[in-house]
Amino acid sequence: MTLPDPGGGISARGVRRSFGPVHAVQGIDLDAPPGQVTALVGPNGAGKTTALLVLATLLTPDAGEVRVAGFDPVTQADQVRARMGWSPDVFGLYDTLTCQEYLEVMAAAYRLPIGVRTARAEQLLALARLPYPDAPVHTLSRGQKQRLGLARALVHDPAVLLLDEPASGLDPRSRVELRDLLRRLASEGRAVLVSSHILSDLEEVADRVVFVDHGRTVGQHEVGELPTARSARTYRLRAVDPAALQRALERVGVGWVAAGHAGIDVQVLGGEAAAARLLGELVAAEVAVTAFAPVGGSLEAAYLDLVEGQK
């Protein structure tokens, strides 16, 4: 077991961790190279948070080899901490501090020189779109707190960023901004590892995806090379004349699952080739199709495939 790319980013091989009888992580391999956003995807209880805690120098793994920014989180925790930012899925803030004070305290905790702390805090508040530096933390909304937590993880300008469910509690606009921010952070050469359930967001931001289930890595893919879905996939169809579309579908023998204002959803078996064939048949039947698209992204399809496959 050799660790590729010891110079930066994250690499983990064969990480295992149990809590008593509970085997939270039983074999996770993952690579998050610098300059890329890597998504960590898996169902609840798959071991994502535990894996991130190991990477974040908080838990010792029972077995396995880990490098974060080129250092071992167990034996070289301080070197890792100097280069790694972590934002957990659930965290507390010091309610009575103001946003500015909070970030300044964290800057001090990361041993930033005293002269730059105020400026760094102001910079991060602007980045996190928190316009009131003197607002006490307890007055912030859930989304604002989430953004303050992200700003905290960036205090020391880390080369590696570990984000556990950063999009939870964010409104749509903030999610789009988070996406842009993550892309920007990666383009600056950072390794960004994000765990999330909001797959549509991840698909647009992630370069790579690591699937985990039951504490194991079950697949690592470039997002562009996701395996095509083996199981049925839902496509949403619309036509100028919905009744004609329904008739045509019945004729070719494709049952529809749901019909509504948004369109008609059909289950397509046999991957993209089958979908293309169906579209061809509908066009040949002179149905004026205006929309023919899979519901959910390819990431979601691959994820559902994975979850189905485990059943």
Binding site: T57, F91, M106, A109, R111
Partner: peptide
């Protein structure tokens, strides 16, 4: 108390010993 409020771990991942 800090553990219960979830503020301890965010301090432990900093460079504070």
């Amino acid at each position: 108390g800090d553990r219960e409020r979830g503020t301890l771990a965010t301090l432990q991942v900093t460079r504070l010993r």
